[in-house]
Each structure stands twice: as structure tokens, then as C-alpha cells.
Amino acid sequence: MSQQEDDLRSLAKIMDMLRGISLILVVANIYWFCQSFIGGWRFHSETMKVLGNLNEAGGLFNNPWNAKWWALLLLALSCFGTKGVKNEKIKWVHIWLFLSIGSVLFFLNWWILSLGWTVIYIVTTATGFVCLLLGGVWMSRLLKNNMMDDRFNDENESFQQETRLMENEYSINLPTRFYYKRRWNKGWINVVNPFRASIVLGTPGSGKSYAVVNNFIKQMIEKGYSAYIYDFKSV
């Protein structure tokens, strides 16, 4: 257990590091393309020298999207390695809404730079990044919880059963309850022609008499059957 806890802590640190690098790339993108607005601080020349070296090595700032794509990749990796508690109020529609808004604000705001609206570029980029972060974290939590909801594969082992009541003057109809498509459903076992013989199999004490035989006898009496009942117990 101690080794597992250490592994989880190490994984959490790696995810935090990836998210931190993603945030640094976003900040670097803003700094590079908004120099006219934030370029007057004390260490501007040193910062631009570092960013210039990064740009020469990987072309991160050749256009407004390169650094953002790398930031999105690292952000996605950090989100899918994050554990958390599922929020019942969060649905897929909320996730897709935040991801859509985040993508538009984060990637489709390059034209703002040509107009010189650096403050709006900073706000839209930061807001888009936060929306993508929230959408990614929620998606990760929802996917992980959905995969753990059916540990014993009950969903794939369930199937549609008869839900219609098919009744005639001779039929025996037994009410049932079955699980299908993540909910309990009411159904019927319809013995529409009991004269063709019926057999009930089950281990001793499994409830054959209570669930089936007693209902058969009750409904047969109600419908005016004549019956010969022989209960044989083998030793």
C-alpha cells in the first residue's frame, strides 16, 4: 500500500509539472506577442533573450498558435492523469460547452493582435485556457467514474426482455423485473399455452414454489382449471 501511495504522489507531481509547463508556455506566448503592453519591466531584455533562444530552437513563437498547441497537449496530459471526485451536476453538455468556448477564445483570437488590442488578447487567451482546463478536468473525472460504474460488466450482460402482457383465457402470466440500459424495467413471463407442458428448474431453496408454482396454482384456480397437484419430495 505504501508503494502504491508513493506512486500516486509521484504521478500527481508529474501532472502538476506538466500543467505548470503548459501555463508557462501560455504566459510566454502572451509576453512575446504583447511586448508593447508588458515590455517595460526591469528584466524585459533578459526575458526576451530566453524566449528568443526557445524560438530559435523550436519555433514556438513563429506564429500565435505553436506555443498554444504545445500548451494544449501538456494540459490534456495533465488533465487525464488527474484524480478527483465526480460532481453529479456536471454533464457532458457542460464539458463540451466549456471546451468549445475555450477553443474559440484560446485559438481564434489571433486577429486581435493585428488591431493592437493587446489587453483583449491577454484576457481571451487566459479565459480560454481556464475553460479548457476546466473542461479537461471534468472530462477526465467523468470518464474515469463512468468506467468504474460497471466493474462487473452487468451492463453488457443484461438484455431486453418481454415487457408486453400477452393474456388469453388459458395463459399464465408472471410479473418480472429486469435490469437493462442502466435502469430497472418491469416485464412479463407469458405462458400463453400451458397445455404444451411447463417445467421449472432450480436448486433446493431457490424459490421455485414461491415465485412460480404458487402463482401458477393461483391463476389456474382463478381461471377455472381443474388440477391434480402432486408434491413429491425425494430423499
Rank of each mutant, 00 (worst) to 15 (best):
L132A: 02
G136C: 05
S103M: 02
I122H: 01
A71L: 04
A76V: 12
W111F: 12
L133F: 10
W70I: 09
M147W: 11
F61Q: 11
A57G: 10
I101E: 00
W41Q: 11
W69T: 05
L60K: 08
V130Y: 14
E46H: 13
V104C: 01
G81Q: 05
V50I: 12
W70E: 06
L143V: 15
I112K: 12
G59P: 06
L133T: 12
A57R: 14
M48A: 06
M148L: 14
G102K: 00
F107A: 02
S100H: 00
E46G: 12
V137T: 04
E88K: 13
I112D: 10
F106W: 00
F98W: 01
L132D: 06
T124Y: 06
K89W: 09
W92R: 07
N145P: 03
K83V: 06
L72H: 03
V130I: 15
N53L: 02
V85Y: 11
I122Y: 05
N87A: 13
W110L: 05
G40S: 13
T118V: 10
V123A: 14
L142A: 07
N62T: 13
L142T: 12
I112Q: 13
G52S: 05
G59T: 10
M48L: 13
N55I: 03
W138N: 05
K83N: 14
D149K: 15
L133C: 03
R42S: 03
C79N: 12
T118R: 13
I95A: 02
K86M: 08
L77R: 02
G84M: 11
I90A: 07
W92K: 06
M48I: 07
F80M: 13
S140D: 09
K49E: 08
L73R: 07
D150Y: 13
G59Y: 07
E88S: 14
A126Q: 05
I122R: 02
L99D: 01
V85A: 13
I95Q: 04
G40D: 11
L113Q: 13
L108S: 11
N55L: 01
W69E: 09
S78W: 07
G136W: 04
F129W: 07
W138C: 09
G136M: 05
A67V: 08
V137E: 04
F61A: 11
K86R: 15
T82V: 03
N87P: 06
N146H: 10
L132I: 03
K68P: 04
A76T: 14
M148R: 15
K68N: 09
G59W: 08
L113V: 14
K49G: 01
S140T: 12
A71T: 05
L143G: 01
W138D: 08
T47K: 02
